[in-house]
Design a protein around this nucleic acid. Structure first.
Length: 474
DNA sequence: TTAAAGTCAATAGA
DNA sequence: TCTATTGACTTTAA
């Protein structure tokens, strides 16, 4: 551990200690999301004190993050999962006390960690916290203590019914969970969560395969046909894109590690695989670098030709009209039902929005877009464009995400720039770099892709390096 | 403005 | 009760 003298190491040291404390506060945030926002902007200077810890000099976690050397996110999450599992510690507890995140976020993070170089400063924070936590020899004990305290508090509360909660909270942990009984003004303020029916998801996925970045018009049509709010469709695309992207990261990692040593392990492996079942192919549609016309070499299957655009309707040049592909000669226009759809959907639904379908909870805003259109005009433009979108089965499989490419470099290459600091920090983070060496191997996989996407690779690499530079500039 | 990144929080499942 | 999933929202970046 002792290697780089440097003054920085000292400050770092103190920081480590800080982190080792069960940092109380993180949790209190529940009511004041402000907390986060306050730290975020901080950017550089020592400004904020993210963690209310005991008033200290110390650097903020952001600073630590900024100085942190490249971390093996996959390895870190793997270890964290092991520790938590082995000690029977839950994600909620861990997330709230150590990371300052909710259970769902922790679950997601642990299951699908993104490679370090793809993370923003903010996104790296949890990993730095995890690493620091892993380095803390008493980490488990501390969490256990928290757990005990929580339990105690809970019991107490239960017995004392109305007791003034605050007293307990303030004590150490600051975690308030259990206050479920809180009075919350809740009335009807909350809008019910939208739950998309399986058929709706299928339709959206198909649409995604046709066009990962649908035009507003297409979105509008989809929304109309599925009887969803436009915003829901938009959100769905945003979420789906980013989630697909993450799946790819995982695959990439897995592929790499596997090829390399057969260290199958990976718990997440199954998960990603599983996910694939349904959307596997859909992934192809991703393309990192998105917005920019994703011209990626050939993927996209050219939207030029084919376009059996139905005769009609318009569909300005924009895009809606041309997607589909081609395979089957059948004019897929609706019904055709390419293979995949077989049972899943009933096209009928599309045309006639499921009104009373069970699953969907009443969405408040329905009123607005439900155009009665379906028939006449609906048919014309709408169905034309979206019909194909909804029914079609895309086929461009070659599409590759460039992400993987960029993810590869993860290995070494620590920017020369902050290297000094980085060095001194290595001890702090206890580097687990061994792991990082793996990835380089997905060669075969990469090769194929590289062949098709050379240009993209270049662009991405460039971008990647640029990114790092910026970060380290700090 | 748009897309991406990061999260929250509801809820489905085990 | 715990974890996984996912629609929505917020922040950040281009």
């Amino acid at each position: 551990a002792p290697e780089s003298p440097m003054s920085s190491s000292e400050s770092v040291k103190s920081l480590t200690e800080l982190v080792q404390q069960p940092c109380p506060a993180i949790e209190t945030s529940k009511d004041g999301k402000s907390q986060e926002s306050s730290e975020a902007p901080a950017s550089e200077s020592q400004s904020t004190t993210p963690l209310p810890l005991s008033g200290h000099s110390a650097l903020s976690i952001q600073e630590l993050v900024a100085m942190s050397p490249e971390l093996d996110t996959y390895g870190i999450t793997k270890r964290v999962k092991e520790v938590l599992t082995d000690n029977n510690l839950g994600q909620r507890l861990f997330g709230e006390t150590i990371l300052g995140l909710t259970q769902g976020s922790v679950s997601d993070l642990l299951a699908r960690p993104k490679p370090w170089h793809k993370l923003s400063l903010k996104g790296r924070e949890p990993f730095v916290r995890m690493q620091l936590w892993l380095n803390d020899p008493n980490n488990v004990e501390k969490l256990m203590d928290m757990k005990r305290m929580e339990k105690k508090a809970y019991m107490k509360r239960r017995h004392s019914s109305v007791s003034d909660s605050q007293s307990c909270e303030s004590s150490s942990a600051g975690i308030d969970y259990s206050q479920g009984a809180s009075p919350q003004p809740q009335h009807q303020l909350k809008k019910p969560r939208v739950v998309l029916a399986p058929e709706e998801k299928e339709a959206l996925k198909r649409a995604y395969q046709q066009k990962p970045y649908p035009s507003p018009k297409t979105i509008e049509e989809l929304a109309t046909q599925l009887n969803l709010k436009t915003s829901t469709v938009i959100n769905w695309f945003h979420n789906y894109r980013s989630r697909i992207r993450r799946e790819l990261f995982i695959e990439e990692i897995q592929a790499g590690s596997q090829g390399q040593a057969g260290s199958s392990d990976s718990p997440s492996a199954r998960s990603s695989r599983a996910a694939h079942g349904s959307e596997g192919d859909s992934c192809d549609g991703v393309d990192a670098e998105g917005p920019p016309d994703a011209k990626a070499g050939g993927p996209e299957a050219d939207e030029s030709g084919s376009a059996k655009s139905q005769g009609g309707p318009a569909e300005p040049a924009s895009e809606a009209g041309e997607e589909e592909e081609a395979p089957r000669g059948a004019a897929c226009s609706e019904r055709a039902e390419p293979e995949s759809l077989e049972d899943t959907d009933d096209e009928g639904r599309l045309r006639a929005p499921r009104q009373g379908s069970p699953p969907a909870p009443q969405r408040p805003g329905d009123a607005l877009e439900t155009l009665p259109n379906s028939a006449a005009e609906g048919d014309a433009s709408t169905s034309a464009a979206s019909a194909s979108v909804l029914t079609g089965e895309s086929s461009y499989k070659s599409k590759e995400s460039s992400e993987r490419i960029s993810s590869v470099p993860s290995t070494s290459s620590t920017p020369a720039a902050g290297s000094q600091k980085a060095n001194s920090l290595q001890s702090l983070f206890g580097f687990s770099e061994a792991a990082s060496s793996r990835n380089t191997r997905d060669s075969s996989l990469r090769k194929k892709k590289a062949a098709n996407l050379n240009n993209i690779i270049h662009r991405l690499e460039k971008a990647a390096s640029r990114e790092e530079a910026v970060e380290w500039e700090f």
